[in-house]
Amino acid sequence: MRLVTAARSSVHPESLADELLARLRVHGAIPRHVAIIMDGNGRWARERLLPRPLGHRSGMKAVREVVEGALQAGVEYLSLFAFSQENWQRPATEVGALMSLLEEYIAREVSELREQGVRVRVLGDLSRLTPAAARAVERVVGETAANEKLTLNLFISYGSRAELVRAMRALAEDVAAGVLAPSDIDDAAIAARLYTADCPDPDLLIRTSGELRISNFLLWQIAYTELFMSPVLWPDFGRRELFEAIVAYQSRERRFGRVSA
């Protein structure tokens, strides 16, 4: 795991973002699948003496920025870790605010996501969502299902260990039913029973806020994923920071366990 930090510049952020975009387009391969652990909303609000829910609200702007950046860069899959299973243990007022923000985000963005060619999928234990949030999820998934330019995976009520348990149970049921032999269980059989069965594994995983943890996100899928730890708090993360991470990714040699030539 390598911690990569970007030097701050006096150049206007939009100008630098455009320069980075031009650079990454000629610098090397664009990662097909970028995953992001969106961290730092609470700290962002605390540093500004604001209520914690305002940090989450400010984080919505970063989601829009990153989606637009992924479209510009030519990323095919963008996975955002929005709400973990452990987050249900937070105070009820905060959980309620997060569910309301999910509804608001979908209501505000669904038309533009549809027009931009973004297919939205919401992955996780959705049985725990509030009825209003579940209806919003059903709407955005349905209205964008035919899009093909970018697949946006929103991980909500998600935990990777729970996902793996779910996959193991499915395998056990197939073995018990006689439709699968134990000897048939391999990497592909497990991957086919994960939420991400029809997605390539992430090429690049970004975590914001400077923390150096995976936090139970896509543990199976990131076996050979390149990691980029950004010091930027999520509400301040935008196209520039996304492009910096992609440029850093392009400078690396991916070996997948092999010895380099």
Rank of each mutant, 00 (worst) to 15 (best):
G74C: 06
S127E: 10
E115K: 02
E112N: 14
A45R: 09
Q89T: 14
P51Q: 12
V122D: 11
R32I: 01
L20I: 09
H27I: 04
L24F: 09
L126V: 06
A107S: 15
S100T: 15
E19R: 12
P13T: 04
V118E: 01
Q89I: 01
G28Y: 03
V95I: 11
E112W: 15
L78A: 04
P53N: 00
S84Y: 04
R48P: 08
D39W: 00
P53K: 01
Q116Y: 00
L71F: 09
G117L: 05
G28N: 02
A35V: 04
D39C: 00
G69P: 02
P31A: 08
A70G: 01
R43T: 04
G124A: 07
L78P: 03
H56P: 03
M99I: 10
P51H: 11
V118T: 03
Y77T: 15
V110M: 02
H33Y: 03
L80T: 02
M99R: 10
H56V: 04
V120K: 07
L16Y: 10
A17G: 13
S79G: 09
A62G: 11
S127M: 00
N87I: 00
L20E: 11
V75H: 02
G124F: 08
L113E: 11
Q89P: 01
P53M: 00
S15V: 12
P51N: 12
L102W: 06
R25D: 04
H27T: 11
L126N: 08
V110D: 04
G96W: 05
V110K: 06
E76W: 07
R121M: 07
L126F: 07
A62Y: 07
L78D: 04
V11N: 00
N41D: 07
G42Y: 08
L113I: 07
Q72G: 00
A62H: 06
L101S: 13
R46N: 14
